[in-house]
Nucleic acid binder design. Structure first.
Lengths: 328, 328
DNA sequence: CTGAAAGCGCTTACAG
DNA sequence: CTGAAAGCGCTTACAG
């Protein structure tokens, strides 16, 4: 592989000069520049990114930590991030945590070892203190996740408001016994969705019944199991709100398995508006989460940090609308 | 940030020695080692990966080029790759090409610039010659894609055989007019699926009717449009085989929109066995492609190349079985 | 406008 | 078992 020195020799200049044309910095005589360019072409020269990185103390790499890339929600999120990153001269290192706190910390160490310039987190599985200690090595941005004290910048939707909308929609349709299937409770956005659900019931002076509130794992199977449990209650719910679309699909399957109809016997609402919501029969009423945009904005935010912007505690909130289809 | 020199000073040794304990190479007096370890701990030292990379001329990074990470098929594929990579001390750089040949070449340049040690490609959108010219800079492995001359190692399924199985299954169910909706024809695996379809028709001496063969883009909408076209024929097909599950979902929607039933009026088969195949009603008969395993094997193959194995032209073929459900 | 020199933070023969 | 020295391939003040 030719190095910068080979180019310099071939062009009859010093490597400083080659470097200048490489980085387009400093004044270079146009004629000299042509000679250098010609030499580079002739040798088929490509600068070593690693050497440049060591010198400049940057990597142009961003670590993106997500629970599971085979989940379409995270797929869209990462897609948004990647497009922005490439446009700005960065690349994305994909880090599947499998929700494992240990692996999350291992990936965070990439920041410390100067393997990446910054990190985007989609879920916080470790004490905030510990995560924050990595900030000395580079910026960290949260997406679809945030911390109450705003000590880390975040890009989110208003999950409380979204869940309120869903609940109000069901109430206005005449439902009073509304089941709720939440995701894992350690996730703040799940707690928010539950808050919104409860808040809106209270707004309409509907008593909150705790046997109607269940909790699962964001999978079809999980939603199915919770729905069976809810449908086995003395006083069955006439509507079920699941905290994501996959679980809502499981709910529909459980309802139909009991010989009941959606929405006539049980109305169902999901959350996210991923592809399955338009495939399942009946099509799912859901919250249209701007997944791709969440990815875009989070990467833009991170890169603006890297460019020197200070935005401790900045929180960007995107709009998420209710998308009414056949299941309610 | 502390460097190796800071550690050396604190421990009262040379940086060579620190480096030796860092890399666990060469003989180091146990006592000296303890001193060094203690100094590292005290300074909270982490070696710079970039400096090590420059010196060792490796990056421990793999570029994975895929058309679109928000597609669950590629999500599962990448998940398999990432797990293997991390286990072996590598990280994955995610490269979304959007099927754009120009972007594909740009990403390939990462190999030349020594930003990555190797590349995995899921689709070849550029002349083989050009892609092969990058081999001088590092290994390239294909997955779910291959080249006829085996000049690049590949991990695949036997798409001809799989399509034959599908077609035979339909024939044995009594179907004689079987529509086929293929993916983009420039993709070799699509050409193979079509070959299998035609081959099996010929085996059973069923004439191949070219108005029954259509071609689309692997999306639900694309499958829907092709199905409408097929269903508008004078002699309608009694079964439709789509080259992936998304298009098969579109087929089911088109059939049902016409007031026809699946499978009684039109049987439908997909390909891949992704999540939607179990959500759509009726559940889809499909080819169960070992997606995650394709990812695993391709990364293992690439890393074995990096470890020095020579495997030009190696082709690994995984099993893919027919998964019969309600749509046939 | 251009070059000589130092330095980014490691690793690795080579001596001892 | 340990250290001094060279070097990976760039970039960047500093002189001129």
């Amino acid at each position: 592989m030719p190095t910068i020195l080979d180019v310099a020799e071939k062009a009859g200049v010093s490597r400083s000069t080659v470097s200048r044309v490489l980085t387009n910095s400093g004044r270079v005589d146009p004629e000299t520049k042509q000679k250098v360019l010609a030499a580079m072409k002739e040798l088929n020269y490509q600068p070593s990114q690693v050497a440049r990185n060591l010198r400049r103390k940057e990597t142009n790499l961003i670590a993106v930590l997500i629970p599971c890339i085979s989940n379409p929600f995270f797929g869209s999120l990462v897609q948004g991030m990647e497009e922005v990153a490439v446009k700005k001269g960065y690349h994305v290192i994909l880090c599947n945590t499998g929700e494992d706190p240990v692996r999350q910390m291992e990936y965070l160490q990439m920041l410390e070892r100067k393997q990446v310039d910054g990190v985007i987190l989609t879920s916080l599985r470790n004490p905030l203190e510990e995560v924050r200690s990595y900030l000395q090595h580079g910026p960290i941005v949260l997406v679809s996740e945030y911390v109450e004290d705003n000590s880390l910048p975040a890009v989110v939707i208003d999950n409380i408001k979204a869940a309120e909308r869903v609940t109000e929609h069901l109430i206005l349709k005449g439902h009073k016994r509304i089941g709720f299937i939440n995701g894992p409770e350690h996730i703040i956005l799940c707690r928010d969705r539950q808050k919104g659900y409860i808040q809106m019931l209270e707004n309409y002076e509907i008593s909150v019944s705790h046997d109607l509130i269940t909790c699962s794992d964001f999978t079809i199977e999980g939603g199915f199991a919770c729905a069976k449990q809810l449908l086995a209650l003395e006083e069955k719910p006439s509507a079920i709100f699941a905290a994501n679309d996959e679980m809502a699909v499981g709910v529909i399957q459980a309802v139909q398995e009991q010989g009941l109809r959606v929405p006539q016997d049980v109305a169902v609402v999901g959350f996210d508006n991923v592809q399955v919501s338009k495939v399942v029969q009946p099509n799912l009423t859901t919250i249209d989460q701007p997944i791709f945009q969440l990815g875009v904005k989070s990467m833009e935010l991170l890169i603006s940090c890297l460019d020197g912007d200070v935005l401790e505690g900045k929180r960007i909130v995107l709009e998420a609308n209710l998308c009414i289809r056949e299941s309610t």
